[in-house]
Write a protein that binds this DNA or RNA. Structure first.
Lengths: 249, 249
DNA sequence: CTGCGTCGGATTGTCGGACAATAGGACAAC
DNA sequence: GTTGTCCTATTGTCCGACAATCCGACGCAG
């Protein structure tokens, strides 16, 4: 994460890419260029091996790489792999790994949420549809109905955020957001179970946000989401969790 | 990217994970738990194969997956793989793939930048060190010195953003930001070369931002960054590039 | 015609083993 | 200290094999 402004070297390292990298790259290019489209089945490993003139096991290594990048997946119970778009969850887990290993703290994630979430709420207030509202309300009800100490409750809170993201109609923010909520979820669980008033405060904020969206009141949406996120930090303080707690694995 | 509020199923798909996935998972867990730390060399493939009681090629498939996730890398010119933290660039490229395949448009990315960058600038204004300022100035000078039509200029602009991110001392935002600038870079290049006044406007904004940071003037930093990013969209409009242009590969 | 067994071929997951190229280290020569 | 030489361990790639199972076809009952 450090950088210098410029660092010219006399020679570049001589390029010696292993074959599996090049195979993966070739397929990746085709996918990004949409020559292979989502849902298209990949050729069989043997076919690929013949086309690239490499052994099947080399092809397989390349496939593992693409699989890990989320560019190909195997539909549950299918044998052949199909081309796919990286799922948001996939990116989120990558981001979470990075955050964990870079010793990101709770405040860092929280700060990022403070930046993003209120604006997402503001956008959502302008663009939400009736369907979005219905889903938000459903999530809200589900949260209120979730029994005390239910670990599922955090899932629902996260889902509320995700629906809101979808309502903002901005895929980029959705992707970024999701990583954050996912990273926070585990510790949030602990917080909710420790702080007695947390649940009611969350429910209240959700309600206010829903109302703001319904009225397309951009300012209020932003304000309440701000409050909502700020409350998280308050909750952590009350629960005696240090803001510098690293994101746990 | 769609979702429903809840979808209970009677049965989960019966779990039948291939061995390479489990091997990858096992190693991943050890890395995230810091039992294997950054820089530690992995055991050799043969050793791993013996420990996991699988064939070496199975281990290799697992390694490819970890490699793609950025959890292990091979230092240039080395033979064995070492544990590493996912580089920001790695995440950024994953994000870019996702954006491309999800048909993210230029406005979507721009909107996300409008949300994030001004706040990053604001944070940076509070936390910047002398070293940060020096690097910003260096990047700024480099930009001004870059010859007309130099494709490298965009690189420098991106670098300016990255230094600013580093100055904000928030790794989470840095990771999120980087993906955006990287996604925008290719089309930005076209814009800069088309719009004559683009370069001077960018240089001016950079200067103002640097001054704001130097004075730790949070409000001004936010304001000028806002203007800076907004200018990008203006530039696109002037250049006749549609805001709905998809992010190119 | 729709739904349900059955069956054969194709494809994947995994394995055993092989070999050339080379990184890494030890050791000698300058 | 640097440079050359040699040996060994390890990786990248290949070959070939086989069990499990997905896939599609085929036929039969309702």
């Amino acid at each position: 994460m450090q950088q210098s402004v410029a660092e010219p070297r006399l020679f570049e390292p001589v390029e010696r890419e292993p074959a599996y990298t090049r195979v993966a790259g070739a397929i990746e290019t085709k996918i990004l260029a949409r020559e292979l489209r989502e849902g298209d089945p990949l050729p069989t490993e043997t076919e690929l091996a013949q086309q690239f003139r490499v052994h099947r096991s080399t092809v397989r290594e390349a496939l593992r790489r693409l699989e890990s990048a989320g560019l190909i997946t195997r539909p549950p119970g299918a044998k052949r792999m199909v081309v796919s778009r990286p799922a948001a969850a996939q990116l989120a887990s990558g981001m979470r790994h990075a955050l964990v290993l870079h010793d990101a703290t709770f405040v860092a994630v929280w700060e990022a949420m403070m930046v993003i979430e209120p604006e997402v709420a503001a956008l959502a207030a302008q663009r939400r549809t009736q369907a979005d509202l219905a889903m938000l309300i459903a999530a809200h009800e589900a949260f209120k109905a979730s029994p005390k100490g239910d670990p599922h409750a955090v899932e629902i809170v996260a889902q509320f955020f995700e629906i809101l993201g979808a309502a903002s109609r901005n895929q980029v923010l959705v992707l970024a957001k999701q990583s954050l909520t996912r990273a926070l979820a585990p510790s949030l669980l602990k917080m909710i179970d420790t702080v007695p008033q947390a649940r009611s405060r969350i429910a209240d904020a959700q309600r206010r946000i829903i109302v703001s969206l319904k009225e397309k009141n951009v300012e209020e949406a932003r304000r309440w989401m701000s409050k909502h996120v700020r409350d998280f930090k308050r909750g952590y303080e009350v629960a005696g969790i240090s803001p510098d707690t690293p994101i746990s694995a």
